[in-house]
Simulated scan of single mutants.
Amino acid sequence: MTVSTIEGSHGTVAVHDWPVADPSWIAILVHGYGEHLGRYPHVAARLNAAGATVSGPDHEGHGQSAGERVLIEDFETVVDDLDAVVSRAVTANPDLPVIMIGHSLGGMIASRYAQRHHDRLLALVLSGPVLGSWQATALADLDEIPDDPLDTSTLSRDDAVGAAYAADPLVWHGPFKRPMLRSIARTLETINHGGDLGDLPTLWVHGEADTLVPIGPSRAGIERIRGTDLTEIIYPEARHEVFNETNQDAVLDDVIDFIRVKLA
């Protein structure tokens, strides 16, 4: 992996790259709230093995990118920055198809990207996406937002995943910020009324036991934007981070199988 920077909408954006020799497609990874793309090397390795050159940004205010921590007031500019990363990857690898893979809040960002830039993608993969509505945004209406630490056991049945998350200095471990919550709520409404994905092949994977981003609201959001080519896989007993779950190999197999079909 290499990390470089580009100039984003509000300062420098760190871009992670996992290149391969003679790639046959481009994978763009889109991470979730409070985390960073440095948590995804095992995902990138599986995509590399399937022939992809892999890239993705740390969003504004996340990971190694500039900005106040976990404060995004306009996700449209985050989509702009993501498009700059796509353009950079396409310039380096002309004529290769692009597949975007978004997890959690990254699923929201990737969905908005697909609404705005449908023609740039061959397919879209959404993992535990924040879509439809998200219960956390209601915290913005409280007089004081509680500083409750994340229960890391909600991430995965693998305790090591939670322990690594808790020890990661680039992960945000503080409270939600009111402007961020309100920006998420606005973006969800924008997506809900932003039109469907047409014929864009879309894979939705979700843990059945996900309490951070429950299936119900995500399903309602998927139904608002789904196009004509949607594949859904729900994993029994799996929690929020299905790419870090005890059955992660099977999940990544499913993702790669879906991608291979679309590449063919």
Rank of each mutant, 00 (worst) to 15 (best):
V15Y: 05
R69M: 10
R226P: 00
F75C: 06
L181E: 07
N247E: 15
R157V: 02
R186Y: 00
P57M: 12
L124S: 11
R186W: 00
L230V: 11
T53R: 11
P57L: 12
H10L: 14
D199H: 13
G34Q: 15
P129Y: 13
H117M: 08
T246P: 09
H36W: 10
A52F: 08
I72E: 13
L105K: 00
T228I: 10
D148F: 05
V171L: 10
A45E: 06
F258I: 06
E7C: 00
Q115P: 12
S104C: 10
D58W: 05
E232W: 12
G162V: 03
S183T: 02
I6A: 10
L82T: 00
G32R: 03
M1F: 12
L197Q: 04
E241S: 10
A164C: 00
S127D: 03
A140W: 12
Y33P: 00
D147N: 14
Y113Q: 10
E60W: 09
S111M: 06
L121R: 08
R120Q: 15
T53W: 04
L47D: 05
S24L: 01
D148W: 07
D254V: 08
D74T: 05
I215C: 07
P169L: 12
D147I: 10
L203Y: 08
L131V: 14
G11I: 12
S104V: 00
P57I: 09
A160Y: 11
D253Q: 11
D159L: 02
A220I: 15
Y165T: 04
A136S: 00
P129Q: 12
G194F: 01
P19S: 13
F243H: 07
P169F: 10
D83G: 09
R116D: 07
L197D: 03
A84F: 01
H10F: 09
T246G: 08
W172Y: 14
S133D: 13
S111G: 13
N192L: 00
A238I: 06
V3N: 05
T137V: 15
G128Q: 01
T77H: 09
L37W: 01
V251I: 14
S183Y: 06
A136V: 08
A166P: 03
H118K: 07
E223S: 14
H10V: 06
I101N: 04
E35M: 11
S104N: 11
G221I: 02
G106S: 13
L200Y: 07
G63Q: 05
T137A: 06
A114L: 10
